[in-house]
Amino acid sequence: MDSVLSLVPVWTLILAAGIFFYVLLDGFDLGVGILYGFEPDLESRNLVMNSIAPIWDGNETWLVLGGLALLAAFPLAFAIIIPALYFPVLLMLLALVFRGVAFEFRFRDSEHKGFWDHGFCYGSALAAFAQGVMLGAFIDGFETEGREFVGSSLDFLSPFSILTGVALVFGYSLLGSGWLILKTEGAVQERARRSGRMSLIGVLIGIGAVSLWTPLVSAEIAERWFSWPNLLFLSPVPLLSLVVAWLTWRSLNGTSHAGAFIGAIVLFTLSYLGIAISLWPYIVPHRFTLWEAASSNSTQAFLAVGTLFLLPIILVYSGWSYWVFRGKVRADIGYH
């Protein structure tokens, strides 16, 4: 872009923040959906579902916004990445449909409650897996020619993308466990602590594998992390991750109600940061930078005006809806 006042950094921040909000917010409620399948009785299932019922659709709106922000600000990236992820996107969307209608249908269609229960649990797990696969395929990069993706619709499938898929299921389960520890008491909370411990082990194996794999496969990424003085500046990211993982583990075994959730959020933040450091400044890894994929200045400016005005308002009233439903949930009287 030839303009002096390039909006690319602004849109990079907005997009990064939007996707991060989505991953955290829908992450914990997809995680709760996964754990829902392990709840043994009707009462605890009602309780677990009630803990996210009032907020899940607001969370999912970030997915639409993230997709549309990518389309509007970096259309070239959208036009390459989304078709390349044809089947993971399909799987995610269909899984989200089942999981989304389950909130409503499970209560109103009691004859088929078992069916919608399964839809909710498997839908959540498959959506999480699909998103993890997308992440892996994204890091791997896509075959392009000119402005187009020219690979096959099965290119997304690799041991690495399966690994990231499974890792994200554990990651969302960890977030979900943290949320349930925060929002519930008694037996449900105890189960959440146990699932949290298992998830944390899975997450750490996943993060470890990705951290070893990516620099081994890509010389660029190895150079980014291990050259001097980057090593010095960037070493806090993995070191902090280890410390946070340890604190989260302690919190899961302790009595803290909020510790595990906060720990999981920080762990996600550091992982997100790590991936961003590895891939910077590419939006289509190894192919197109943020600047190359950006839409016209007029497009970015037209949308930035409204976004910068509306985003803070959205954050305020989204925050308010969380505030309304603060505190522990109870199954017998709904969620407030």
């Binding site: 259309p75 996107v89 839409s295």
Partner: peptide, 17 residues
């Protein structure tokens, strides 16, 4: 909106601005 990307990526690239 995901249909624009999965199935109509040339349309997306051409009209997104």
């Amino acid at each position: 909106p995901f249909q624009f990307g999965t199935n109509w990526s040339r349309y997306s690239d051409a009209t997104a601005n």
